[in-house]
Design a protein around this nucleic acid. Sequence first.
DNA 1: GCGGCGCTACTACAAATGTAGTATGCGCGC
DNA 2: GCGCGCATACTACATTTGTAGTAGCGCCGC
Lengths: 124, 124
Amino acid sequence: MAKERIALTKFETEVMSVLWRLGEASVREVQDAIERAEPPAYTTVQTIVQRLEQKGAVRRTRKAGNALYFEPAITRKSVYRRLVDELIDLIGGSQPLVAHLVETGKLSLDDLKAIEKAAKRGAK
Amino acid sequence: MAKERIALTKFETEVMSVLWRLGEASVREVQDAIERAEPPAYTTVQTIVQRLEQKGAVRRTRKAGNALYFEPAITRKSVYRRLVDELIDLIGGSQPLVAHLVETGKLSLDDLKAIEKAAKRGAK
DNA sequence: GCGGCGCTACTACAAATGTAGTATGCGCGC
DNA sequence: GCGCGCATACTACATTTGTAGTAGCGCCGC
């Protein structure tokens, strides 16, 4: 389902997050879903969605009233993978990354155990 | 050692990586240390280093010949923390992040165990 | 059927970022 | 002690990104 060599900016990624969460949304709905101190103007969100459309990251699904609805055209996982890969590359390995998480208290040993268990079950 | 609310771009972060690795380096050395298909021009690297200096991320240490040497003025950890935090925020938690790593094969169960062990020892 | 309102399409623009050129200065080797 | 060459300081510029305004069209309600 697509090669997905699409680079997304921060804000674009944020919009994608909303779409992944909602499955489908109008520009208005995306704007409403973004929580910010200073919320972006409607047209700002619109521009981002348009850019995403040009990049092939979202596609139009339907029209309700005169509003268009959009859905993601790339998977959450593919985008995460890209971001995570970059970070791993920078930090120098996934193990150091996780070690960093533990060190800085972002992740507890219990968390690790939970993940292990889930992984074992999932891998079956 | 500094509040370190410094935002770094991708390229800037790359340069910082070199400096953390080398401890101290001239612009020329940084340029040489960057591996790229198309290596950046000397002055390009120079510009980045200058911007880093303005941001307070690096500082001059000494002069050898007529070349300046620079060293990091912010810690690797503080930058990592920032990047990791952003990613966690986006993905929605550190646990999902690690889960993603395991799922996509970036991290094995053995890695997890190793990290756990190390953490236990370290935390003592 | 028509008017208003919301939505889209298009345009604009400032700041950040990546990339590099030019002018000039200074140190080292001869 | 002088000039060559590398390094610096300054300037420049295209692109990307964030942010938003405006013009105009098409639905829906009346």
